[in-house]
Simulated scan of single mutants.
Amino acid sequence: MAWLTDPFLLPFMQRALLGGVLAAVTCAVVGTWVVVRGMAFLGEALAHGMLPGVAVAVLAGWPPLVGAAVSAGVMSVGVGVVSRRAGLSHDTAIGLLFVGMLSLGIAIVSRSRSFATDVTAILFGDVLGIRAADLWLLAVALVVLIGATALLHRPFVALSFDPRTAATLGLRPRAAHVAMVLLVTAAVVTSYQAIGTLLVVALLLAPAAAARQWTARLPSTMALGALFGAVAVLAGLLLSWHAGTAGGASIAFSAVALVALSVTARAVVPR
């Protein structure tokens, strides 16, 4: 069992495991709503749209998390404004802002010749470089997002399955949608440190999608998704250690592989 335990004798691997699990649980809880509500494109756009803010923050010497939060906030608000003012569909507004923010980020990056390493960390994360302060941030975000999800569970359920009924019951589906977008934004922003802006979508979607193969109940989907996410983090870090691959990419690959395994196993196991 040395192959399993030896990598985690090192402090940086212990922090990587703990930080990755915290991010995975956060993304599994919020990602359940993303999968059920069909908001995968928005999650991906938010993750990619953080690039200009993070790039500006890194170049200016500010905390990257601040830039990520600002960019994600612009994306979240901008989608609603563009879709209402321009009379465009929600998906079209997301696509336009996604491309615009991503191209702006690349343009900012292209202005700096010494930015290659920072861009790699932004896009693919630095899970092996997680610090104690990052762990505290992830832990606080997890507690806050779980609390918000529990508090808004009823309007979120009504919004996801029947918005007209939600409106009839006075649950304010538009406000619930805004709250859900804010939760997705917060999960993406706080988790990108672990696996980067391009790969955070894997933890947001894959564990919840794998869990949905086995259960239709939302609380059990969240719990099973959190377990799948933790397994993906463990498997990804072991793969990274023994195969010498990038940590964030290994975690994302393991998460997607769990979906394939779940789909295959569910086809074999009788319902």
Rank of each mutant, 00 (worst) to 15 (best):
Val188His: 07
Gly31Cys: 07
Leu203Ile: 11
Pro64Asp: 06
Met180Glu: 10
Thr117Pro: 15
Thr185Lys: 09
Val143Met: 02
Met39Ala: 14
Arg85Leu: 13
Ala132Ile: 12
Thr190His: 13
Val233Ser: 04
Leu234Asp: 11
Gln14Ser: 00
Pro7Ala: 13
Ser191Leu: 00
Pro11Gly: 04
Ala47Gln: 12
Asp134Ser: 14
Ala116Cys: 09
Ala257Lys: 06
Met222Glu: 05
Thr32Asp: 04
Val74Thr: 13
Arg174His: 13
Leu42Gln: 08
Leu9Asp: 06
Val140Asn: 06
Ser191Val: 07
Met75Gln: 07
Ser254Glu: 10
Pro155Arg: 01
Leu204Thr: 09
Val157Leu: 12
Ala68His: 10
Trp136Asp: 10
Ile122Ala: 03
Val140Asp: 11
Val25Ser: 00
Ala55Gly: 11
Ala249Asn: 10
Ala24Ser: 06
Leu9Val: 06
Val29Gly: 00
Ser250Pro: 06
Phe41Arg: 12
Leu159Asn: 03
Leu205Thr: 04
Ser220Pro: 01
Leu96Lys: 01
Arg15Phe: 10
Arg113Gln: 15
Val256Phe: 07
Thr221Arg: 07
Ser254Val: 00
Leu96Thr: 12
Met75Val: 10
Ile251Pro: 04
Leu128Ser: 11
Asp126Phe: 15
Leu18Asp: 03
Gly49Arg: 08
Ala249Asp: 14
Thr92Ala: 12
Leu137Cys: 11
Leu88Ala: 05
Met101Asn: 09
Gly247Val: 05
Ser112Thr: 13
Ala235Cys: 13
Ala45Gly: 01
Ala132Glu: 09
Trp136Phe: 08
Ala148Asn: 02
Phe228His: 08
Ala23Ser: 14
Val66Leu: 05
Ala223Gln: 03
Thr120Asn: 12
Gly236Pro: 11
Asp91Thr: 15
Asp118Gln: 10
Val269Leu: 14
Ala72Phe: 04
Ala257Ile: 06
Met39Trp: 04
Asp134Tyr: 12
Leu237Glu: 05
Ala24Gln: 08
Gly31Tyr: 00
Thr117Tyr: 15
